[in-house]
Design a protein around this nucleic acid. Structure first.
Lengths: 225, 225
DNA sequence: ACGGCAGTCGAACATCTGTTTTAAACGGCT
DNA sequence: AGCCGTTTAAAACAGATGTTCGACTGCCGT
């Protein structure tokens, strides 16, 4: 544990950092271990010494990346008690959560985790279950709680559909990122833009939830007749 | 043009078909020309004879795939005059359009075009502009027309945000396809499920649009004071 | 002072990949 | 028949890629 102290830790971390960026930018198969080594400024064999194989390195990158995200999120204290909050408070919570997810997906840094997650969705690996449990599930559960508070009459299935509708709106801007320049002259993703978009999504979603709730009520009333 | 009639067209098409499936399933880099040849049941050199290179083949696959989609869509006669339609009609148009896009993205066949498009979004190639113009743009314009009809008071920017909110809800089920089994016990994507989901998205979106519209009206009134 | 050891390095290995080449066959067309 | 576009077969090529090997380095404990 001598050369480790200054070198090994540094080397290992530099490999992880370089691999994260390259895997996100080009994907697993288009990224070569030589690219990673060159980008990290380390020897080609260093990667295999620390991780054993390219695939293990990839999984380790995922673990490191999403562990980092979750700790940074809990640090920001976004876990709030939604049990007994007013409607206005819940709306604020929703908007804040939407803004956080937009930031997370679109960066800066330019949506590293968002890109990695999207790649996992398209080419699932052994890392996907972990990512879903550690990263997606908490967000989903939180929004489920908020939606349940905002529309108490909805049953679980309807709540889930509403949550998917909300999350879908958020993911859109990351999924279609490459196509957006061709579709509209969207401004750069500044903090201002993120806040405005979060406000729109919140407003849109609140309207959507009340519409779905009243439709369900109407359906119920119709059945009783 | 003799051996073409039965062989060339057959061979060429078989290569395209096999390449489409493999590119969608594994992506460009993870697919080898030998895999394609074996899957198509043709000789290795056949691909290069017809397409010259793997990249050209890929672009040709994209062209063929999205040309096919668009012709099949126009055959279904989904271009309707939305200029002077009643609100109820517009709602029906929206729901039909949402259902079509869900089918397109989720298959069967299991979302081949949806997967290819998603891969293009993540790793754009020379095919992306064409895909956007031929495939994404028409859908967007159609929904813009429907939304404009449903909420005439909204300005262009607000309409676009609403369209993104609608399309985002649709894409969600394709983007998060791999994660859905971990998140909820979603039923298989039968026609029934697609119709129900389209109904939900339509209902949710109508509510969202009226909410956004009334918020805009409120903002306007506030400014005038 | 010295052996051990984790870490690093340069080189090499075996395999895979896209592409090209060569030769031979097949089938319709004039 | 002879030609020509198409297809097959087999091989080879150059370059890239993941992985491994052996030697070297610097530091620690004894």
């Amino acid at each position: 544990m001598s050369a480790i102290a200054r070198n090994a830790a540094g080397t290992r971390d530099r490999v992880i950092a370089a691999a994260s960026a390259l895997f996100a930018e080009r994907g697993f198969h288009a990224t070569t271990v030589r690219d990673i080594a060159r980008s990290a400024g380390v020897n080609l064999a260093a990667g295999h010494y620390h991780f054993g194989s390219k695939e293990t390195l990839y999984l380790e990158v995922m673990r490191a990346q999403f562990d980092a995200v979750m700790t940074s999120l809990t640090q920001r204290g976004l876990r709030v008690d939604t049990a007994r909050a007013s409607q206005a408070t819940l709306r604020g919570l929703l908007q804040a959560r939407v803004a956080v997810m937009l930031e997370l997906l679109l960066g800066p840094p330019p949506g590293l985790q968002g890109t990695l997650m999207l790649r996992e969705m398209l080419d699932p690996s052994a890392a996907l279950p972990r990512i879903v449990e550690q990263f997606v599930r908490p967000h989903k559960d939180e929004i489920v709680r908020i939606v349940s508070g905002l529309a108490p009459r909805l049953d679980a299935a309807a709540v889930e559909r509403c949550v998917f509708s909300i999350v879908g709106q958020i993911f859109f801007y990351r999924t279609q990122l490459a196509a957006l320049p061709y579709l509209s002259d969207t401004p750069p993703m500044t903090k201002r833009w993120i806040d405005a978009t979060a406000a729109h999504i919140t407003s849109f979603s609140l309207g959507g939830m009340t519409a779905v709730a009243s439709a369900a009520r109407r359906r119920q009333a119709g059945r009783k007749r």
